[in-house]
Design a protein around this nucleic acid. Sequence first.
DNA 1: ACGATGATGAAC
DNA 2: TTCATCATCGTA
Length: 170
Amino acid sequence: MRQNLLPKSFFNRPTLQVAEELLGKFLVREINGHKIEGMITEVEAYLGFDDKASHAARGRTPRAEVMFGSAGVWYIYLIYGMYCCLNIVTEREGFPAAILIRSAGGVKGPGKICKYFHIDRALNKKFATTDSKLWIEDCGVQPQHIKKGKRIGVDYAGKCKDKLWRFEIP
DNA sequence: ACGATGATGAAC
DNA sequence: TTCATCATCGTA
């Protein structure tokens, strides 16, 4: 039943490559024995010290610190006072990077995903494994077409604002 | 087009 | 301790 759980080594690689390969994978949430699953169809990459759109651009602050840590860990934060955003940390320790999951299982928008999958900040800094009851599986889906585009809502991000770091399955 | 709504980080 | 800022959403 359970296909390949994506291991830490999957995420401990160049962020843009991981972001692209994340499309077609399945986000799985387990809530008291019940499973919620959805195919990931849209992601955005936030990487490096110079990416002003990334929380890590301001350095190793308490909130962004998790982005500097181990790959394969969830980074979940509250935005606009009412919504949570789900990210997965990538790359080696010391290099800040994460991927925002924008759409999964037909649910579009980071805030809505967290509501649908019952995700909140209690999962922040947890590894994406069955233990944390939130993980990602490879079910063998190979996306036909991957669309690349500019990230949403990052006009303030200076030289990184026009990077094509948004990937989606149309 | 905009208001709801609160944590975050930086300045003072 | 105060202040501007914000990887959004729902209603209009």
